[in-house]
Each structure stands twice: as structure tokens, then as C-alpha cells.
Design a protein around this nucleic acid. Structure first.
Length: 747
DNA sequence: ATGGTATGTCATGCC
DNA sequence: GTGGCATGACATACC
């Protein structure tokens, strides 16, 4: 055993340690003979293999002098390896696998036969001939440090040269006069499984700081909650114990850093670390990952995950959450899910529901959301949809667009809620415009209804409901039937300019209108009254000025005339003539009465709606008294102010409606955010719990096996570093009980 | 009778 | 300075 210990301490292990320090994984056990052979001495004739020489020869078999069947064996192995490699992904990363080689005293070059590990290595040689990238494993950092470029194209000679260069750069140089240690000592076969405990521990503790640094780097790079962990546990303590129990190699650390999914594919190593790799620390590492994350996906920053979740969930939630306005922010999440499920069972938005269920249940939802739903629109799809004309029959129903193929996929939900509301509002306005354009004939009827409600006698027939955005236009159309709807656009901007549109009076009536006027006669009460009260002046003015607009006004004063067909009285209506006259008189405004009393020769409508130039021109053509001029200007001022007030109130209502929509959208958004926050908090809590369990396990093992590493000072340090956390407190208390140190009592 | 609503009107500021 | 518009405030009518 002394020789064995010496062998480990002075020979192979040192070389392996040196190579490990350089980042090269050294798998020695495949090349080690049984322990008995080690103890009893060398029995194998194949003690050294200069595989670089083997690599140089294409056939290579001639070098295996003592393995005549090696060709077939290698071929079988290669095929088996190739077949096995079909069931897993082989990342063609530039990795280099190194082997410890032996050299026979007779300088015969061969590989170690009869051992699986050796065959693996030899097989690696064969594979390297085929695809150097698959079996060559070497830390990329080593290659960089050594100034080597791509490994995949390196041949075996380069590999061996690399080994020799690296070895030469290490401590072997110290014994330059002697035979190099890897040549002197490698004629003894060692089995790593028989490593003494102290040596193993020595190996594990070797270069502890570097490995800790690597571990911490990997941890910092991968764990989104590293800060919390750093505060919970002392880094040195935790990772010393962690490594001690799992014997992480540098390569594993590097692989942890890379978080390469191919880590699980470690069978190619064929070394003694297989058992330890079954207890892969990566399993613990993966267990630390967020359950929201796919375990084979690169770790994302939590905030980024959160943003992704919001981005992915925002559109879909809008439709679903439309029915969740009553949900309180503190509503139970599960209850919400169930309620939604009930509410949307059989609904057309079941797709969204399924999305939520996926979101709730699938731990990989932040990645798979887009895949679970069918929202596979690209920008061109959306643009084409928006630019494409709606199908026939859907013009008046742009809120639902039933025949749109994208409606079933909730296209509006693709947008932000506020944006969606804005678009909705815009579409609504356009829709109203279309409706007004199509239903302009309905305007007079509504005006008649509104006229009955209006107590204004200013001949302003725009007294529609404030909610109607077409009040201004309709009023203009009623007061002068030709100035209105045809010239009015229906956009909101036009509505804002409704007051201006009132004065746009069509100067020449059409023939049809004249026929209607002749047929209907003097419909307007104002006209009739004016004709009755001022027959001379009014008709004189009309004939004297020969103003088309005046003629127009003559026949189009339907204001205060709820019974616009009063002149075409049926026998039934004649009975109500007296009553209607009373009503007509009742609806005469004060200004009209004043105008009548002062014998104003114009209608209030023209007084109000005429442009200022024409209005002044009209005033200049009459010899009016000061009282009449004052009244006319007051009528005009009040009439315009009346319209302005109506527009103002309509706008105010529109603003209120918009604000209500925004409030609803924001309320839904808030509820959704609170739900998602609750979910994330729950996930975080779960991860914290897992971390606590992990560290509890690690420290439990530390106390049982390597309790020396966890001294009271360590726990004290941990307690000082940690801000909070039940784990640190518990361990501190345990260590306090164990150590019984008065120092803790003092603290 | 009372409160809410709709509408008209005035005053004011701004353009 | 004037005209027009917007808007708050108030008044009034109606339900």
C-alpha cells in the first residue's frame, strides 16, 4: 500500500491535478488495471500508448501488435457508439478529451486493451478520426490559455503535443533531469475507485478558492436569487460543503456555467465520476431553477421573465378579463381561475381560457405561451388584416367583425388594453361616420324628436342628444336642409368643428328641395309666423335681396315645429290644429319672440349661422334701429354660444366615456397584474423553500461527514452575513448548541 | 316635493 | 378691437 500511496501522491494524481488545474479533464481510471495488478506490479505489456503515433497512421492497426483483433473490436465499438449516439443530442462543441498514456518499456505504441475505459479511449481515437468534435473534450479555457485554436480539427498528434506541452509547462519541469513523471510513473496502473479517502479529500480541496470562484461565478450567472442566497448563507461555507459532497470538477463547474443541457450526457467520459455524476450537483442546481422556467432553457433574468409573461399574457387577458371587472384585487387566484372556467365554458373565448389554464399550470408557460395559443401572427398578417376591407355585411359591426377570420383569434387582444381602447374608440367613430353617411335620411326624424324637447326658440335644430356626435351637422341640415350631411365629414375633428359647419349654408337649393318646399309649403313655424306677422317685410326682404339662403331658410325652419307636416293636415289633424298652434307658440324661444316683437326681418337661424361677412352685409342692407341691432347680435351670440355649449357638453361626455373605458381597462390590468404578482410571489416562495431544503441537506451532510469544515466561526460568519432567513438562524442555533460557545451566548 | 338631467345663458379666457 | 370658440357656472324646465 505504501507503493500505491506513493504512486498516487507522486505520480499520476499529481499529473491529473495539474491537468485539472489547467482545465483538462483527466480520466485515469479507464487506463488503470485492477488494484491487485497495481499492488503486485506491472503485468500488462501495454503500459504506454503513444496514440499520436497511432493517429498518424490511417490503418493504425499495425501498431497494435498485441491486439490482432483490435480492428474488428474497434469497428464494433465504433458502430455501437454510433448507434448509441443516435438517441441523444451530440453537440459538436470543440471539446478535447485527454488520456493518460503509457509507454511500454519496449517503446511499443499501443493502447491499453481489455478495459472498457481504455477501449473508450481507443474508441475515442477512432471517433476522432471521424469527428474530432464529438469525443474530444477539453475546457475551452485551456485552449485559449495555451494559445490553441479550434480543437475540432486537431489531430491526435496535436493532442499529444498539447499534453506534452502542458505537462512540460507544469511542475514536471522541476524534475527536468529525471525522467518525466508521467513517463516514470505511468507504468503502474491505478484504479481511482481505490483512492484513499485522504487523497480524495485532498484532491477535492485542491485549489478550493478557484473552484469556489468558479462555483460562485456559475451561481451568479445562473441564479436569479443569488443576492438573497448570498445573504442567507456564507458563500465559502456553503460551496465548500457543496463541492465536498459532490466532488465537482472544474469541467463540471464550467459546464454549470454554460448550463449546457448536454451535461446530462456524461456517459462518454466513462470515468469513475459516473457515480458521482449520478448525484449530479446539477440536479440540485436545476432544482433551484424557477419552476416557471424550462429546465433546459437558458436562465433568464426574473424581471425579463416577468416582462415576457406580461407581454405574452397581456393581449389574451383582455378578452378574458372583460368579465372579471368585479374581481377584487385580492381575489383568490384559484377561485378566479375556476370562475373563469365556469364563465367561459363553452364560450367562444375558451381558447383564452385554455391559455390561462396553461399559464396557471404549465411551469414553462413563459416560454410556451406563444406556442400554446394560436397567435402566430406576424406583422404582415396584422397589417393585411387592418388594411383589408371588411367583409360584406360587417361594416356596421366592426366591434365584432364576425366574418373576419382573425376575429376568432381575438385580434384586438393582440394590442395593449389602452391601445385597444383607443383603437376601439377610433373604430367607433369611424363606424358612427359610416352610419351617419348611410343613415343621413334618419336625421330629420331625430331632429323632430329633439325639437319637441328643446325649449329653445333660436331655430337651432341641433338639439340632439349630446351623446350623438352628429348633432352639429344634423342641426345644420335641419335648419338649412342643404348645408348639412352631404358636406359633413364624420370624423371627430369635424365634430369639433361643428360650430363652424353650421354657417356653411348651401346657397342654391336643388330642384328637389324646391319641389319639396313647394309641396310642403311653409313648414317652419318661424316662417309661417314670420309670414303671418311680418308678411310684407319678410317677403320684401326675400324678394329684394333675392338671397338663395333666405329662400332656403324660408322653407326649412323646422325648429320648434314638431309637426313639420302641419301644413298638410289630414282631416284627423285638423282637429288638433288649435292645440298645435299652442304648442308651436309655446316652443317659440324668447329670442324669436323678441325678434318678432322688434320686427327683425331675419330669422334667428340666419342670424346665427351666417358667416360674419354675410351677416354684416345683411345688417348693412337694412336700416335697423340700435335695439334691433343689439337684439340681433345677442341672438347671434347666444345662438353660437348655445351650439358651443352643446359641443362642449358632448365633448365632455365623450371624455367621460373615454375615461370610463380607461378606468375599466386599467382596473382589469391592475387585477391581472395582481394575479400575476401573486403567482410570481408564490413561485419565488417555492424556490426559496427549495433553496432552504437544499442548504439544509447540504449542511446536514456537512455536519455528519465533514463537520470540521463547518466550524462555529463559519456559522458565526454566516449569521453575520445573512440578513434574514430561517436557515441561517436554525444553523446558527444548532451550531450554538453544538459548540456551546460562550461567544454565541455573548452575541 | 325633490333630486337628477338636459338645456340655455352668461361670464370669462384664449386665439 | 372684434369675432369666434371653449368652458365653468348658474338658471330653468322637465322627468
Amino acid at each position: 500500500m505504501q507503493s500505491l500511496k506513493k504512486y498516487f501522491t507522486e505520480g499520476l494524481i499529481q499529473v491529473a491535478i495539474l491537468l485539472s488545474l489547467a482545465g483538462i479533464r483527466v480520466d485515469v481510471d479507464p487506463y488503470l488495471p485492477p488494484l491487485a495488478e497495481i499492488i503486485q506490479g506491472q503485468s500488462s505489456a501495454l503500459t504506454q500508448t503513444q496514440f499520436h503515433n497511432l493517429q498518424n497512421s490511417l490503418d493504425g492497426y499495425s501498431h497494435h501488435l498485441k491486439s490482432v483483433d483490435l480492428d474488428g473490436f474497434f469497428t464494433t465499438r465504433r458502430l455501437l457508439r454510433w448507434v448509441r449516439s443516435l438517441d441523444h443530442l451530440q453537440v459538436p462543441a470543440a471539446q478535447l478529451e485527454t488520456w493518460l498514456v503509457h509507454r511500454e518499456p519496449e517503446n511499443s505504441v499501443t493502447v491499453i486493451p481489455g478495459q472498457t475505459g481504455a477501449l473508450d479511449g481507443a474508441d475515442g481515437l477512432v471517433n476522432m478520426e471521424e469527428s474530432a468534435g464529438l469525443t474530444m473534450r477539453m475546457g475551452s479555457g485551456v485552449m485559449t490559455d495555451l494559445g490553441y485554436g479550434s480543437v475540432g480539427d486537431e489531430n491526435m498528434e496535436d493532442v499529444s503535443q498539447l499534453l506534452r506541452n502542458q505537462m512540460d509547462n507544469e511542475d514536471i519541469k522541476e524534475d527536468a533531469d529525471e525522467i518525466p513523471m508521467w513517463q516514470q510513473e505511468l507504468n503502474h496502473n491505478i484504479h481511482q475507485q481505490q483512492l484513499p479517502e485522504d487523497l480524495n479529500q485532498q484532491h477535492s480541496l485542491f485549489n478550493e478558492e478557484d473552484q469556489d470562484e468558479l462555483m460562485m461565478n456559475g451561481w451568479r450567472n445562473t441564479n436569479p436569487f443569488r443576492n438573497q442566497l448570498g445573504s442567507i448563507l456564507g458563500e465559502d461555507v456553503q460551496f465548500a460543503g457543496y463541492r465536498e459532497n459532490n466532488s465537482l470538477s472544474i469541467e463540471e463547474c464550467l459546464q454549470l456555467l454554460e448550463a449546457d443541457p448536454s451535461l446530462g450526457d456524461q456517459q462518454h467520459l466513462g470515468d469513475a465520476n459516473m457515480e458521482r455524476e449520478e448525484e449530479d450537483p446539477l440536479q440540485h442546481h436545476r432544482s433551484l431553477l424557477s419552476p416557471l422556467l424550462p429546465q433546459h432553457e437558458p436562465l433568464l433574468d426574473l424581471e425579463q421573465q416577468w416582462q415576457d409573461v406580461l407581454d405574452l399574457m397581456d393581449p389574451q387577458d383582455m378578452d378574458v378579463d372583460a368579465s372579471l371587472d368585479d374581481f377584487d384585487s385580492n381575489a383568490n387566484i384559484q377561485g378566479s381561475q375556476e370562475t373563469r372556467e365556469r364563465e367561459h365554458m363553452g364560450n367562444s373565448t375558451h381558447q383564452d381560457l385554455s391559455l390561462h389554464q396553461t399559464h396557471q399550470s404549465d411551469q414553462n408557460h413563459n416560454v410556451s405561451n406563444s406556442s400554446n395559443t394560436d397567435f402566430h401572427f406576424n406583422d404582415s398578417d396584422i397589417i393585411n388584416f387592418l388594411l383589408s376591407p371588411p367583409p360584406e355585411g360587417s361594416v356596421h359591426n366592426n366591434h365584432s367583425l364576425p366574418s373576419s377570420p382573425l376575429e376568432e383569434q381575438n385580434l384586438p387582444s393582440l394590442f395593449d388594453p389602452l391601445l385597444e381602447d383607443a383603437m376601439f374608440e377610433e373604430i367607433s367613430l369611424l363606424d358612427l361616420a359610416l352610419e351617419e353617411g348611410f343613415n343621413s335620411s334618419q336625421v330629420p326624424q331625430s331632429e323632430e324628436q329633439e325639437q319637441t324637447d328643446s325649449d329653445s326658440g333660436l331655430s337651432l335644430d341641433f338639439s340632439q342628444s349630446p351623446a350623438s356626435p352628429s348633432g352639429s351637422e344634423s342641426s345644420c341640415s335641419s335648419s338649412s336642409s342643404s348645408c348639412s350631411s352631404s358636406s359633413m365629414s364624420s370624423t371627430d375633428s369635424t365634430l369639433e368643428e361643428g360650430a363652424v359647419g353650421y354657417v356653411q349654408i348651401k346657397e342654391e337649393p336643388t330642384d328637389e328641395e324646391e319641389e319639396e318646399e313647394e309641396e310642403e309649403g311653409a313648414v317652419g313655424g318661424y316662417n309661417s309666423e314670420q309670414n303671418k306677422m311680418f308678411p310684407d317685410s319678410y317677403m320684401q326682404a326675400s324678394q329684394f335681396h333675392n338671397l338663395p339662403w333666405l329662400q332656403q331658410i324660408d322653407h326649412d325652419h323646422t325648429y320648434n315645429q314638431p309637426q313639420c307636416t302641419i301644413q298638410r293636415k289630414s282631416p284627423k289633424q285638423r282637429s288638433d290644429e288649435l292645440l298645435e298652434d299652442k304648442i308651436q307658440e309655446k316652443f317659440t324661444s324668447r329670442d324669436e319672440k323678441r325678434a318678432l316683437s322688434l320686427k327683425i326681418p331675419f330669422s334667428t337661424d340666419c342670424i346665427i349661422n351666417l358667416p360674419v361677412e354675410e351677416f354684416n352685409e345683411l345688417l348693412g342692407k337694412y336700416h335697423l334701429s340700435e335695439a334691433q341691432l343689439t337684439l340681433i347680435r345677442d341672438i347671434r351670440r347666444r345662438g353660437k354660444n348655445k351650439m358651443a355649449a352643446q359641443n362642449c357638453r358632448r365633448r365632455k361626455l365623450d371624455v367621460l366615456v373615454g375615461l370610463e373605458r380607461s378606468v375599466d381597462g386599467l382596473r382589469r390590468h391592475r387585477a391581472r397584474l395582481l394575479r400575476e404578482k401573486s403567482e410570481v410571489m408564490r413561485s419565488v416562495q417555492e424556490m426559496k423553500q427549495r433553496l432552504n431544503d437544499l442548504y439544509q441537506e447540504v449542511y446536514g451532510l456537512l455536519r455528519e461527514e465533514q463537520g470540521m469544515l463547518c466550524s462555529a466561526n463559519d456559522f458565526l460568519l454566516e449569521q453575520e452575513n445573512s440578513s434574514q432567513g430561517p436557515l441561517s438562524t436554525r444553523y446558527s442555533s444548532e451550531s450554538r448548541r453544538k459548540s456551546g460557545s460562550k461567544r454565541y451566548k455573548k452575541d
